[in-house]
Design a protein around this nucleic acid. Structure first.
Lengths: 119, 119
DNA sequence: GCGATACTGAACCGTATGGTTGAACAAAGC
DNA sequence: GCTTTGTTCAACCATACGGTTCAGTATCGC
């Protein structure tokens, strides 16, 4: 597997590795928000939250439009698609696990026959 | 959107935020490997690579089976599925973006008609 | 037993991270 | 013009990170 842009992926996954930032993205999924609106739900200083927004922005996950003194933030999901593409390379591994589990459960249902029949 | 296990996701995304660790996972996708085999491709001390393996392990992405002096590592993809599930909440946003792009390209093909027809 | 091999642990280093506070700035509202 | 509001910036702090080196432990082969 070859990565075309490791540094970008680094930034995106790092941005996602913090629950505060993930919740901010979740908020942005329901529409644009100012930095203040993004900060409000958190027991954290305004400046602290502002830093988180900057991390999201520099990972390309948030676009900022400055309108007077208000900074409007918009979700920019394209980098998430890249991260998802990376993850899905491993999809067959976790589905295989689920398949094994399913086969196991089926085998428990009728333990006397159907041997070696579970894909 | 509610997260059921923020700390786990933190650990998984953090583990993925380093290109060295992502390459180790890629290596493990092609089969079990010892810590030494995982370390070999990198211009890095053995101990350094061993630390990376530990990060992957504590994120639940790697299972270790100790056989004599060799530590065999196996890919454990289930946590990746969790991360993927999180990401896919945003799928519609990036597909929407791609749709817009597609519509734009179509509009360029025939710029005189088909106005307002791009979803 | 002895040396080589496979690995972890501990100590250390420089830098990044997540957080704070307080000052600064620009734009609105009065 | 003055105050309030929305926001960043700079400085600072503690802790975590990615890396190193060196020592330690366990196992294998002879």
């Amino acid at each position: 597997m070859v990565e075309q842009s490791p540094a970008e992926l680094d930034a995106v996954f790092h941005a996602l590795s913090d629950a505060t930032r993930r919740r901010m993205l979740a908020r942005l999924a329901s529409g644009e928000a100012s930095v203040g609106e993004l900060a409000r739900p958190f027991a954290m200083s305004f400046a602290g939250a502002s830093k988180h927004v900057k991390v999201l922005e520099s990972a390309g996950l948030v676009r900022r439009r400055i309108d007077g003194r208000i900074h409007h933030c918009r979700l920019e999901a394209a980098p998430l698609a890249e991260a998802d593409a990376w993850l899905r390379h491993y999809e067959r591994y976790w589905t295989r696990t689920l398949d094994r589990l399913e086969a196991l459960l089926k085998a428990e249902d009728r333990p006397k026959h159907d041997k070696g029949n579970a894909r």
